Amino acid sequence: MDLSIPYAKELNIASLVVQRATLLTKKVLEAVDKGALDKHDSTPVTIADFAAQALIISALHQAFPDDKFVGEESAQSLRNDPELLERVWSLVSTTRLDDPQIESLLAAPETRDEMLDLIDLGGNGDGGRNGRIWVLDPVDGTATFMNGQQYAVCLALVEDGQQKLGVLGCPNLNLEKGQILEDVVDKDGYGLMLSAIAGHGATIRPMGRGALLPAKPLEKLPSVSSTSDLRFVDCLTANSSDNEKHQQVITRLGAPWPPTTDLWSAQMRYIAIAVGGCNAMIKIPRRKSYRSNLWDHAGGMLIVEEIGAKITDLDGASVDCGLGRTIAGCYGMVVAPESIHGKLLEAVQQYLREVDC
């Protein structure tokens, strides 16, 4: 670990806690495959969400006791459901990395009550512009997680409203096709992890069961001069986005539609841009009032920015991560290589002016 790089200790701990949490989610999926859990109800993903959040926050809270948290889950439903509580506790208390020396760097809850309180550190976190805040989504892509498709364990460090670090563990990520496909998964290993430190680039590494495996730098996004060379990632089944408007904008640009890559998980769409097969994304919400959750974007945004993408809202403003549990000031989104972002943003704005007339 190169301690001369800012946030090097944070990156090391964050990468280890994400790797441990991905092993936990894999255990849940194995239980589904063996019939121990019913994939047709919400129990498996609920257990994975709570248990992963507890393990992540436990280790970070010990390592950085003054830091705060924003997480998707709160523990009230576990307090109200003793059976669910026991299932989550069983998973939290037994999931460890195989390397004892590495595992010793990571705290884990010692009691059920401690586990509940740790989960609530995230679920009750308000976010904001002051100080250091860890933002986490234990399982981003719950529907595809249940289907054994693509999902991510997501963690970001936001300091004074700015992303400083992002780590995304993608347990099913398999790049043998040169891009991400929902059903092309890593059946033999533990997937891939992508990470970034602000101003210091982004990396990718395979995940394992113990010490971190070697990482290599992610390549920069190629420069794009023509909008017809844009290749979009989208989610055609998303309820929050207006895909009819997406289609109108993208076909006007001369780019392919349907999108080159179609993924349910919001964070996996950033990963798709980072690893190839696509290089752009737009989000035109169906409702003017819609705002995304912070944990659906923090970390993934940083990774693609570090390889040369520019991200703004539909007005061209940068995304503010210091406004609470949502990206409250951000209506919609445009993501593209910096060389072409302005043209793409202009095309989106022109189309929206026409349809709003």
Rank of each mutant, 00 (worst) to 15 (best):
L29N: 06
R87Y: 13
W257H: 09
E354V: 14
D313H: 01
R205L: 07
Q101G: 01
V224R: 02
R286E: 12
V18K: 05
G127K: 08
H200T: 11
E114A: 05
Y290V: 07
A14K: 06
D117F: 00
G276K: 05
G308T: 07
D113A: 00
S339H: 00
G342I: 02
T95S: 12
E354T: 13
L24A: 10
E346G: 06
Q53R: 10
I307C: 01
K220T: 03
V335A: 01
K245S: 14
V28G: 05
I307T: 04
L218T: 04
S339V: 01
P217N: 05
K283H: 14
A238S: 15
A8Q: 07
Q163T: 05
H61N: 11
I327D: 02
A266T: 09
C357D: 13
S223D: 10
N243T: 13
E305M: 14
H246C: 15
A336W: 02
D81M: 12
R112E: 04
A54P: 07
R132K: 13
G199K: 12
Q150T: 13
E354F: 12
W89S: 10
S58W: 00
R269T: 00
A75R: 08
L165F: 11
I102D: 02
A266K: 10
E103F: 03
A48L: 04
K245P: 07
I250A: 02
I56A: 01
Y290T: 08
D160H: 09
F50Y: 15
D81G: 14
Q163F: 09
A108W: 04
M281D: 10
Y190C: 03
A196M: 07
V139K: 08
A215D: 05
G141D: 11
A36M: 14
D296G: 08
E30P: 05
T203W: 03
L16F: 06
T261Y: 01
Y7G: 06
V184R: 09
L118C: 00
H61T: 04
S225E: 12
A143G: 11
E306V: 07
D126F: 09
Q349N: 06
A152P: 04
V224F: 03
A272E: 05
L192G: 05
E219T: 03
S292N: 15
I271C: 03
